[in-house]
Design a protein around this nucleic acid. Structure first.
Lengths: 201, 201
DNA sequence: GTCTATAAGCTGATAGAC
DNA sequence: GTCTATCAGCTTATAGAC
């Protein structure tokens, strides 16, 4: 999956560098010059791989976003409400843990959403769709707020540098338990492989 | 409190405009030109009120930050743990509600923290101090994570445009209850005036 | 207080050599 | 694939007129 050709390696290193700098300075606060310097190449070399800055932003965000869609699709196919909730929550927590800073970036930086809205439509409905999976189609205000606090909190706290030292399994388990507790569900272990996309770990 | 002189009015309108644009585009994504245009003045006029962009960023953030410190001081003076928690949580929720988008900005935009660190030291310990008030000095990992998810979630969800239509009292009550529930405390009404700084409402 | 004018520098982006 | 060189445009910031 990594290191096929030199170009692909540079491309993936470029995306990793961009993500790191986006997390530290925000999308707007990160220039192509900064990315190029950190990579040890020139701006023009960066432009060989991506035509525009927006293209970089999209490429940084796309994999996690598509995986999130896949996880929500999967959750919607579950027959019981309980299983739907566990799949949606488990999938979300999985993504937070595996992409860490990226997911936090979604909740925070306005720049990344703007860049993605142009390529993927309906991005702002992501949170709405996830919330619907967690608390049903017609939640009251208290339930809606609880779900929003939970989703934003999981993403931001999970991506925080304060917990960067925690291994994936530990972080995943704890975040999942917090989610279940906030949603009023009994404590339980998450199955590590909720389904799709475990191969990347 | 507002509209003493023309200059002070312009100054406060400038800060309100800056906050609005910071929320929409991030600190790095907002230029002085944008602020000036939105205000209907020139860039040079903006520079009359503030020497640098960082100074604007600091001035936008300072009032909420100093109030947060005051609230935490007050909470620490409480004698019982329960009262400490209620004061800290209530004070935090009060600030979220009253400043809305600003507090969300702290949790997200890296630019605002960088600007403030230069003037106010120990900004990164704010979250740590608040967490200590909420869950004590030596929490286990699960408790630490719960507090971090709660603090980040309250701030981000409370500042979300999705809840902009909610009146202060409604939002405050619900966020406070969510906080108490996550901290494992029985449900209760927050006293609207937990102490200081109710006059601004 | 707000303006015009301007400086110096960084931005995203392109063209063409190697 | 990466480089140097260059572009127009925007950035923060200053000087001085009104």
């Amino acid at each position: 999956m990594s290191g096929d050709t030199v170009a692909e390696d540079t491309r993936s290193r470029l995306l990793a560098t961009a993500l790191k700098l986006f997390s530290e300075h925000g999308v707007g606060g990160t220039s192509l010059q900064m990315i190029a310097d950190e990579l040890g190449v020139t701006k023009a070399a960066v432009y060989y791989h991506f035509k525009t800055k927006d293209e970089i932003t999209e490429a940084v965000a796309a994999p996690a976003l598509q995986e999130l869609i896949a996880r929500m699709d999967e959750a919607e196919r579950q027959r019981t409400r309980g299983s739907q909730i566990d799949h949606a929550l488990g999938g979300f927590v999985d993504l937070i843990v595996r992409y860490r800073s990226l997911i936090a970036l979604f909740n925070s930086d306005p720049g990344i959403m703007r860049a993605i809205e142009r390529s993927l439509d309906g991005v702002e409905t992501f949170a709405a769709r996830m919330r619907k999976l967690l608390v049903g189609p017609d939640p009251d205000l208290a339930t809606t707020l609880t779900a929003n606090v939970l989703l934003a909190g999981l993403a931001l706290a999970g991506g925080s540098s304060e917990h960067a030292h925690l291994d994936d399994e530990t972080l995943r388990t704890h975040l999942f338990d917090i989610g279940r507790r906030m949603l009023g569900r009994p404590k339980r272990r998450p199955k590590t492989g909720t389904g799709v996309a475990e191969e990347g770990a």
